[in-house]
Simulated assay, not measured.
Amino acid sequence: MADPQSSQLPEDELTVPRAPLNKMIKELLPNVRVANDARELILNCCTEFIQLVSSEANDICNKQAKKTISPEHALQALDSLGFGDYLQECKSVLEECKTVAAKKRKASTRLENLGIPEEELLRQQQELFEKARQEQAAIEQQEWLQLQAAQAAQAQQQGLHLQPGMQPTAATGGHFQPYQVAEGIPQHGAVPSLNQPSSGAGQLPTESASNQQIPPS
């Protein structure tokens, strides 16, 4: 194995990327403002720590006559360097990484077993999205129609549609009350009966009045 410290890469490529480090600082210290000098110092410390652990893991790998540095070599390097307190947390992170990697491999294998090209899968996905949008639009349209019908029924129940013989009054808070029909005045559409006597000017003399005798002068 090649020693990481003997690499000929530029110095900038041997550091931790600044963007992930800044994101980590922001997540861990959301209410603390960190100066640029402090960020640079943290970056250098992280880089030095990674190089130290990598070098120790490489030595352990060479002693065991292995050609690949495994996670166990890194854990042994932490323990030998005096960072044994980090072992439990590192093991937990290692298990999470293995779980995520297994899920990715399983998903990739399942797609490969289908034998469907990626373009066809993308087209089917777009069709499913379009179908879901149409179904959602139909549901929203149905809900809107039901709401309109409910509002119309409520308006009719409250008497917003004027019924014959009903009128709104201020005294009743806008509710509809029957018309007050004056005595002797026929209601709308009513026909006066011929058998009912009428009073007032313009009345025709009755038969008894025409047969009444006039006294002599």
Rank of each mutant, 00 (worst) to 15 (best):
M1N: 09
A2Q: 12
S6E: 10
S7T: 06
S7R: 02
Q8W: 00
L9N: 06
P10A: 05
P10I: 00
E11H: 08
L14M: 07
L14C: 02
L14A: 02
T15E: 15
P20T: 00
N22Y: 08
K23W: 03
M24P: 02
I25D: 01
K26N: 01
K26I: 00
E27D: 14
E27R: 15
L29H: 09
D37V: 06
D37H: 12
A38W: 02
E40K: 15
I42T: 06
I42Y: 03
C45W: 03
C46L: 12
C46V: 02
T47N: 01
Q51T: 11
Q51G: 11
L52E: 14
V53M: 02
S54A: 14
A57H: 00
N58I: 05
D59V: 01
I60L: 05
K63R: 15
Q64V: 04
K67M: 08
T68K: 12
T68V: 10
I69L: 09
I69W: 05
S70N: 13
H73Q: 00
L75T: 01
Q76P: 00
L78Q: 07
G84S: 07
D85F: 06
Y86C: 08
Y86P: 03
Q88R: 15
E89M: 10
V93E: 09
V93K: 08
V93S: 06
E95W: 04
K98E: 04
K98M: 02
K98L: 00
A102M: 10
A102L: 09
K103W: 04
A107G: 12
A107F: 11
S108D: 14
E112M: 13
G115P: 06
E118I: 14
E119Q: 11
E119R: 09
E120D: 13
E120A: 09
E127L: 02
E127H: 04
F129G: 08
K131E: 10
A132E: 13
Q134R: 15
Q136Y: 02
I139E: 12
I139A: 15
W144K: 15
W144C: 13
L145M: 12
L145P: 08
Q146K: 13
A149V: 07
A153M: 03
Q154C: 09
A155I: 03
A155Q: 11
A155G: 10
Q157W: 00
H161I: 11
G165M: 03
Q167C: 04
T172L: 08
H175G: 09
Q177K: 14
Q177M: 12
Q177Y: 09
P178C: 06
Q180K: 12
E183R: 14
G184N: 01
P186A: 02
Q187C: 07
Q187R: 13
A190C: 03
S193C: 06
S193E: 07
S193V: 01
S193I: 00
N195S: 15
S198P: 04
G200L: 01
A201I: 01
A201G: 09
A201T: 02
Q203C: 14
Q203T: 11
P205E: 08
P205Y: 05
T206F: 07
T206R: 13
S208W: 13
S210Q: 15
Q213G: 06
Q213T: 10
P216W: 03
